[in-house]
Amino acid sequence: MLGIPFALMASVGWGISAILVRLGLRNMSVVRGTLISLVTSLMFTAAVTLIIDAAAFSRLSPAIVAWFALAGIINFALGRQFNYQAINRIGAARASPVFSTSPLFAIALAIILLGETINVMVALGALSVLVGLWLVTTSR
C-alpha cells in the first residue's frame, strides 16, 4: 500500500508542527505566529501543487473559488488561529487530542444539517472520544 508511508508522513508532519508552534509562541503573538506559519504553508503547498498538478488551476470556476475561499477563512484564518491559541495556553500534548475530536463534530453537523443517522459503531466511537476527552481535560 503506497498510501501508508504518506499517511505516516502526514501524521508526523502535523505532530512536529504542534511542537514547533509551542516553542515558537514563547516570544511571539499568536496572530503573528499564525500569519508566519500560513505564509510558509502556502509557499510549500503552492510549490507542490505546481509540480504535481499545475493544470488544475485552469479548471477553476468562480463558484469553486468561492467554496475554497470560505474553507480557507474557516480552516486557516480561524481554525489555525484557535489551534495556536489553544497550544499556547494548554500545551501541544493536551491540545492535540482535543483537535482530533473534529470527526465527532462532523457527525453532529451531519445529523443536524444532513439528517444522517448513526450506527452502533459510530456511537461506540463517540463514547470513546468523550471518555478520552474527559481524561485529557482533567489530567494535571
Binding site: G3, M9, I16, S17, L25, N27, S37, F44
Partner: peptide, 23 residues
C-alpha cells in the same frame, strides 16, 4: 527564533496536508 520555529511549523503542517491528500 520564534519566527523560525513558526515558519518551519508552517512547512511541517503543509507537508501533513499534502501527504494526507496524496495518501
Amino acid at each position: 527564533r520564534g519566527a523560525l520555529f513558526l515558519g518551519i511549523a508552517g512547512i511541517s503542517a503543509a507537508i501533513g496536508v499534502s501527504a494526507n491528500y496524496i495518501a
